[in-house]
């Protein structure tokens, strides 16, 4: 049973990774990357590594997504200031 759930998670991870690579908007890429981290943490849990799964969920899906979004906002602000 668990192998089908794992296969579903793998499909989600691969799809979101492709979205992150091919998306035109950077914000969509960042959100897709967060989803990739979430799925990968689920895969770690299925592979019986709960320590790594917790770390991945806290850092990959939580903090680094937020920090990427903040950095993107800062970069856009700098670009608009240059144009003025």
């Amino acid at each position: 049973m668990i192998i089908y759930i794992a296969a579903l998670v793998v499909a989600v991870v691969i799809t979101t990774a492709l979205i992150a690579v091919f998306s035109k908007k950077l914000l969509s890429s960042i959100i897709a990357m967060g989803l990739v981290s979430l799925g990968v943490s689920g895969l770690f849990f299925f592979l019986q590594a709960p320590d790594v799964a917790i770390t991945e969920a806290a850092i990959g899906a939580g903090l680094s997504t937020a920090i990427f979004v903040i950095a993107l906002k800062k970069v856009k602000k700098g670009e608009s200031e240059d144009e003025e």
Binding site: P50, D51, I54, T55, A58, I59, G62, L63
Partner: peptide, 11 residues
């Protein structure tokens, strides 16, 4: 339990 210093700090 699973976990430790790094995930706790990140949380």
């Amino acid at each position: 339990t699973p976990g430790g210093g790094f995930p706790g700090g990140a949380v």
